[in-house]
Structure formats: structure tokens, C-alpha cells
Simulated assay, not measured.
Amino acid sequence: MKNLGLIDKIVFIFNSLAATALLLSYLLAFIPPKSFPLLSVLSLGVPVLILINLVFMVYWIIRFKRQFLLSLIILLVGYNYATNLYQFTGDTQTSEEELSIMSYNVRLYNSYGWTDEKNIPEKITKFVKEKNPDILLTQEHTVDEIGINALYPYKFVHKKGRNSEFGMAIFSKYPIIGQSSIDFPHNGNNNSIYTDVVVRKDTLRIFNVHFQSLNIKPEIDELRKADSKKLLGRIGQGFSLQQEQAEMMMKKVNETPYKTIIAGDFNNTAFSYVYAMVNKEDRFTDAFLHSGEGFGQTFKLNYFPLRIDFIWVDNKIQINDYKRFKNEFSDHYPILTKIKI
């Protein structure tokens, strides 16, 4: 640093802090949130830290300074994290016999009027009918919603608790021969359900998951008004609950005798502990990483393209395509993958 001017020295100090924070955040995917709930919050900032380090690297390159190596090395160490953030091209193909699977958090079909847009249930039903997925997984599903229900001959619609107004659902064009709910032991409607679906001569187990919400409002003004200590504490507690829920689900996944697909609203990013837990044994492929493009944003956050909805496909199954549909009927965007059967 002795060859740097005062301003460059100050810039390099901030660069070092950003690089250290990014390196630490890489490790958080392997540290149980229950151990360090508040520290795990840093994983939400990985996308921002990656972009900040890219900016620092470009700054030093323009200045012809070897300090660019700091951010470059940190980014190379976390190369897989960068690919989780953005995909330049997707690997797509077609097969004569394909199965399409869609996951969609429908936000109660606007039952509480979160948007002024009219006829949301009808618009969601029309959208699903147009895309025509063979299997549809919905989270925050209003159990008496008849529009979607009428599109599929086979279904498993489950609400957690007698007084619940909503739950989760799996709809299928193919026969469902088994179904169950894991029922997370926490207050609220977050849960995981699964069905065994017979597709031609094969049986697939389909998990629909909705992990604990972190209760982060997408509006930047709401974040500014929030008490930072309470917000961080709530997020940390949410991460701890997500860990427990993921452990329960993965126990059932690991007992499954069939090829398996896991999809739904994780309420967390691809840099989180629960994301890493799903693929701890390299059994699954994130369909976005295989066939997606761009940031793959699935949640309407005003200040960053957040991807918190996922479709994990058993490695024994070929992924043909992945798409994200940017409509305005919920605070989540629906995602769809096509697989070869």
C-alpha cells in the first residue's frame, strides 16, 4: 500500500473489508444457522458483495494497480457462487416424451387485496391453463380456490391445522398413488408435502416445500422504517427455523425409494445453508443452473433480483429446459422445468 495515494489507500481499506465479508459469507453455507443465527444473515448479502468486489476489481484494473488481485482471487475462490447469481446461457434440449413441472407461490390469489389488480384468481388460472404444466405445485394456496382445482384430475390439497385458511397443493395430470404432509412443528402455515406420481411406467416422488418466511417487505421504504436490531433478530430466528424444517424434509427425501423432485419457495437464496443442505450429497441439480438464463429472479424485491424459488431435479433425470415467467399476479414469479421421461 505504500505506493498508493491517500484516496487509493482508503479505497483499498474498503475493498479489503468487502473481500473479507465475501470470503466469510462463502463459509456460511456450511455453518448451521442455529449455531450463529445473526452471522447467517450475511448470506443474504452475497449477491451484493459479489457485485461490490467486481466494482473494486474493475477500479484497480483501470488504475493499473495490482490490488485488483485481491477481489479477483476472492471471486475465483467463490466461482460457483457467481454462477448461482447469474447464468449467461442455459443448456436446453427437447425430447419426444417430456414432463413439465411448475412451482408457483400464488399469495392466496390476492385474498387480502395486496394488489389493486382485479380478478387475480381468474388470471392465475388462465396463465396456468396457457402454460399447461403436467404437474403444478402451489404455495400459499387458498384451499377452496376452484379455478386451478378444476384443471387437474389428480390433486393433493393440504392445509396445516384446522383453522388454517390456506396451505399447499400438488396438481397432476398423472395418477397420484401416495401422498403425505411433513407438518413442520412451528406456528404458521409453512410446510412440506409430497406425492408419488405414476408417469407412464415410472414413479416420481414430488416434494412441494414452503420454508419459514423471513418477513422482509420488498419496499425499500419499509426497510428504512424497520428497527434494524429487531429485523436482524427476526431473520436470524427465521434461518434457524428453516434449518430445522430442511432437516425434517431431507430425512424424508433420503428415505424415498423413487426418483425425486423438490420444488417450492425456500424463502432463502442459493447462498444459504438450507440450499446447500438439499444437495449435500450431490444427488440433485438446480434446474436454473442447468437451463436457466440471467439472474433468474423469482421474488419481487425492488432493489435486487432475488432468487428464492427453486426446482431441484434428481440427477437420474435429464433436464430439458427451465423458464421463469415474469407476471404480476403474486409477489413471486412462477418457474417451470421440463424433464425427459
Rank of each mutant, 00 (worst) to 15 (best):
A246R: 04
A21T: 01
V209L: 05
L336H: 10
V77A: 00
L22Y: 01
V209R: 07
E130Q: 14
K340Y: 07
L23A: 03
F239M: 02
I339Q: 06
A150M: 11
I311D: 03
H290K: 15
V55A: 01
R283A: 00
L85W: 03
R162Y: 12
Q87V: 14
N163R: 05
T298Q: 07
V199K: 09
L232M: 04
Y26W: 08
Q139V: 04
L223A: 07
P257I: 05
T269S: 00
V198Y: 10
V278K: 06
E140Y: 08
L49I: 02
D8I: 01
M102G: 04
F325E: 12
Y86E: 11
N132L: 03
S103C: 08
T115Q: 06
F56K: 03
M168R: 03
N149E: 14
F166C: 06
Y322H: 15
L70E: 11
N187T: 11
K173H: 13
F207G: 08
Y112A: 06
V128K: 01
K173Q: 15
L17I: 15
K65Q: 15
F36D: 04
H141C: 10
I148H: 03
F88V: 15
E117T: 09
Q87G: 11
H141G: 12
P257C: 04
L6Q: 14
N279I: 06
V128N: 05
I308G: 02
I7W: 12
A19D: 01
K338I: 09
A19V: 14
P37I: 00
D144M: 08
Q139R: 10
R224E: 09
Y26T: 05
G147H: 04
N254D: 13
T256K: 03
E145G: 10
F329H: 14
R324Q: 13
D286E: 09
G188L: 00
I177H: 12
S95L: 04
F288Y: 11
N132E: 15
D282G: 08
A150N: 12
Q87L: 13
K225S: 12
V58P: 03
L4N: 10
I235N: 09
I262Q: 09
I170E: 07
S35V: 12
A263H: 10
N302K: 08
L27Y: 07
I216V: 14
P121F: 06
K131V: 13
I73M: 08
E122N: 12
S103A: 10
F156D: 11
L232Q: 02
L49F: 01
N187Y: 05
Q242I: 03
K251Q: 13
R205A: 06
K160S: 04
K34F: 08
L44R: 14
M277L: 14
L136N: 06
Q179F: 06
D221M: 00
G90A: 06
I317D: 01
S172T: 00
Y333R: 11
D282S: 13
I206W: 13
E145R: 09
I220P: 04
G78H: 07
R162S: 01
I339E: 08
K326N: 15
L49Q: 08
L24C: 05
F304D: 07
M168Y: 09
N254G: 08
G161H: 00
P37G: 07
S228R: 06
I182D: 12
V313Y: 13
D134C: 01
F299Y: 13
G188I: 09
V253L: 00
